[in-house]
Structures are given as structure tokens and as C-alpha cells.
Design a binder for these strands. Structure first.
Length: 386
DNA sequence: CAAACCGGGATCTGCCATTTAA
DNA sequence: TTAAATGGCAGATCCCGGTTTG
């Protein structure tokens, strides 16, 4: 508002004074802080009060406070930043502002990832341009920074970022895939090229081991189906694949199909979670009189069932069964499990009120969008009136 | 035409531990 | 030795609608 330019002028003034002070103090400060430390290493007396080694940069603290940064939180995250002699908080703020970030967003970004203020203007511009090679607008980038400042700022290696983009493109991911990837899992692009490469190699190796003919295509398929895969550890992904294979007793061929299909989404579950969910799924199914083969069939046709937590899955199934649907029907049309228990419950009630017969009409009606469901309900209501 | 099939979109960071660099 | 860089982890679905099929 009206006050903003005034404040900024004040900040700039303050900044230039502060800089002068810092430079003026620099040679003077270095001597006394270094000297006692050296003495200490020669005669270490642990009981003596340690000389304060490096003080926090006072003008920096003041600047950040004025900018609305949550200094306490920031200090807790990255204390080292606060002892730096030269920082670029104003440069960063101006930069982000020029890209359309609000003051509030900027403060929040620095609060959550203080090291951002150590980046130079040139560096920032370069990194931004690299991101812009994937995004259409600055606004998209701003919203991601606001969501996850760490993804953008954690690495200062722009060259590595560039190599990642080249690498991912070389996998056959197109512009749209890259866009989705950077939007969804921005951390991927701050990974070292090596780390990303290792995951891709793991996937390709697995494909080859299972007798797949096109490992590159396989890796690409998994990445585009599971955008989080590259921010998982190879250890985790490998273990999940092994576990799936053994617990379901899958043939190579079945596993291959599962992984490059809907199963890709399941790979980034934590190892424990996957195991636990599989176990409880099996128990639940057994208690409903199902065979092992039923469980296998269910997982193969609808892998996301393993994504559902023990408790939730149990209540969801019970809710369906209580509504007059058989487990056999669920096995045939597992996608009904996609919907929330609340949603299912509501629909079951409505359907019951018009006397819908699941045995006769099937349960597909549960697996449909709200709009379509409501439209259908209206027709049913009319016909049941007559 | 309605029903069934099928894939996609939203979302997923913020912290801790270890290694590397200065 | 400190700070920076990097790797890793836990957490835990739901919904929509274009297209094909019958």
C-alpha cells in the first residue's frame, strides 16, 4: 500500500548502512574471533566459558524481521545462515517480487528455507530461466516456491539442473510430462543427476530381468504414471517390487504388466506400509471367505487397493457389504473402492430409497461422477414414483 | 442412447541424517 | 569445524468425464 515504498526506501537505506558497517568491521572482526580459537586448540580448557565464536548478523536479523520473516523458525532450520557476513535478502526479495510473489509469500519462503538468501541475483535469474524452460509463466513457478521453497533452493547447482532436464527429456518424456513432473514433484529436479540416473537404471534393469523387451519404454511408463518415483530411494522401490512379487507369487510376465500399468502408483508406498496393507487385505479377504487367488486378482486388477489403509479398507468393505453388495461383485468391479466411504454410504442410502437392486443392476452405478450419479438418481426417482 | 471402460487430475512437504566442500 | 549440499523418510485417496461399447 502507500506505506510500502516508504518502507522499502527505509530498508534500502538501512541495507547500505549495514553493508558499510559489515565491510568496515570485517578485518577488525576476523582478528579477535580467530585468535582465541587458535589459543583454544592449543590449550583446550573445557570448563572455561567459551568465547562467542561467530555472532549472528544483527542487521540481517533486523532486515528479516522487517520483511515479516519468522526468524525463530528460520533460525531453527538453518542457523548457519544467520552468522553469515554477506547475504542477499533484499536481492532475493526484489527478485521474487519482480516475478510476482507477494510480500507474504516471500517472507514465508525465507522462513521455511533461509538459505535462499545466500543466492546471488545472477544465480537466481539463471535458475529461474531453467524452470521457465518447462513452465509457461512466472506465476506457476511462484506458486510452487510458495508451496515448497526447498525444492527450488536446496541445490545451488544450476548446471546439474540443466543436465537433469536434458536427461529426463532423453528418456522420452515430452514437454507435458516434464511440466507435470516439475509441478508435482519439484524435488526431482534438485536431485543430483546421478541419483535420478540410478533410479532409471534400476527400473531398466528390473525390466530386463523380467524379460521385458523395451527397458527404456518401461522406465518412462513408470515415471509418467508415478511422478513421485524419482524422489524415492531405489532401496524402497526395489523392496516394494520384490515384496509384490513374492507375496502375490507373480510370474515375471505378470509383474512386468503390473508395474508398467496401474501398479506403478503403488511403488512409492513405504515398505512397511505396503507390507502391512497387503497383510491386512489378505486377512480381511480371508475372513470374507476369499481365496488367495482372489486377492491376487484383486491386486492385479486394482493395485490401488494396497494404498488404502487397514482401517479404512475394512470399514469401506463392511459398508458395501452391509448395503447389500457381495464380495464377489466387489472383486468384479473393484473400482468402487476408489470412492470415499462417506460418498458410498450416501449413495447406498439414496439407492435403497428407490429400491435399487444391485444383484440385478450391478454396482457400476457407484463408480461414477457425482454429476452422472445425480442424473441417474433423478431418472430412478421418477420411474419409482410411477 | 446409456452403460462400461479407462486414464488422468488434484496432490507431496518438511524435517532429519549423512556426506561433501570451504 | 561449520555450513552447504544431498539423500531419505513418513504420511496414506478421491473424484471426474472423454471415449468406447453394446
Amino acid at each position: 500500500m502507500a506505506a510500502v515504498p516508504g518502507v522499502r526506501a527505509l530498508l534500502n537505506l538501512h541495507r547500505s548502512v549495514a553493508l558499510q558497517c559489515r565491510f568496515a568491521l570485517l578485518p577488525v572482526q576476523l582478528t579477535p574471533t580467530c585468535l582465541p580459537r587458535r589459543l583454544c586448540t592449543i590449550t583446550p580448557k573445557s570448563n572455561e566459558p567459551k568465547p562467542v565464536e561467530r555472532l549472528e548478523n544483527e542487521s540481517l536479523l533486523e532486515n528479516l524481521n522487517l520483511m515479516g520473516v519468522d526468524v525463530k523458525k528460520a533460525r531453527q532450520r538453518q542457523p548457519g545462515v544467520f552468522r553469515k557476513v554477506i547475504t542477499n535478502e533484499h536481492g532475493l526479495a526484489q527478485f521474487l517480487q519482480s516475478k510476482g510473489a507477494s510480500h507474504k509469500a516471500i517472507a514465508s519462503i525465507i522462513s521455511r528455507f533461509p538459505r535462499a538468501i545466500t543466492r546471488t541475483a545472477d544465480h537466481l535469474e539463471q535458475r529461474w530461466q531453467l524452470w521457465r524452460s518447462i513452465f509457461e509463466t512466472d506465476a506457476e513457478i511462484v506458486s510452487i516456491l510458495d508451496r515448497s521453497p526447498e525444492s527450488f533452493f536446496r541445490s545451488s547447482d544450476n548446471e546439474n539442473l540443466e543436465k537433469n532436464i536434458v536427461f529426463l527429456t532423453s528418456l522420452g518424456l515430452n514437454a507435458k510430462d516434464l511440466h507435470r513432473l516439475l509441478t508435482t514433484a519439484p524435488r526431482t529436479f534438485s536431485n543430483s543427476l546421478e541419483l535420478n540416473r540410478q533410479m532409471v537404471e534400476l527400473l531398466e534393469d528390473i525390466c530386463a530381468e523380467l524379460g521385458g523387451k523395451d527397458p527404456e519404454k518401461f522406465a518412462k511408463a513408470i515415471i509418467s504414471r508415478n511422478l513421485y518415483i524419482l524422489i524415492r530411494s531405489t532401496k524402497r522401490v526395489k523392496k516394494n517390487i520384490d515384496d509384490l512379487k513374492t507375496s502375490l507369487k507373480l510370474s515375471d510376465c505378470e509383474l512386468l504388466a503390473l508395474l508398467q500399468g496401474a501398479g506403478a502408483e503403488i511403488l512409492d508406498l513405504s515398505n512397511e506400509y505396503l507390507k502391512k496393507n497387503f497383510k491386512s487385505l489378505q486377512q480381511k479377504m480371508a475372513s470374507l471367505g476369499c481365496q488367495r487367488s482372489d486377492v491376487k486378482k484383486l491386486v492385479l486388477s486394482y493395485p490401488m487397493v494396497l494404498y488404502i489403509g487397514t482401517e479404512r479398507l475394512s470399514t469401506k468393505l463392511d459398508c458395501l457389504l452391509k448395503g447389500g453388495i457381495t464380495i464377489k461383485q466387489i472383486l468384479e468391479k473393484p473400482k468402487v473402492l476408489d470412492y470415499s466411504t462417506q460418498n458410498i454410504t450416501g449413495r447406498l442410502e439414496k439407492l435403497q430409497s428407490v429400491g435399487y437392486d444391485f444383484q440385478e443392476s450391478g454396482i457400476n452405478i457407484l463408480d461414477t461422477s457425482r454429476k452422472r450419479f445425480d442424473a441417474k438418481m433423478e431418472k430412478l426417482a421418477v420411474s419409482s414414483d410411477e
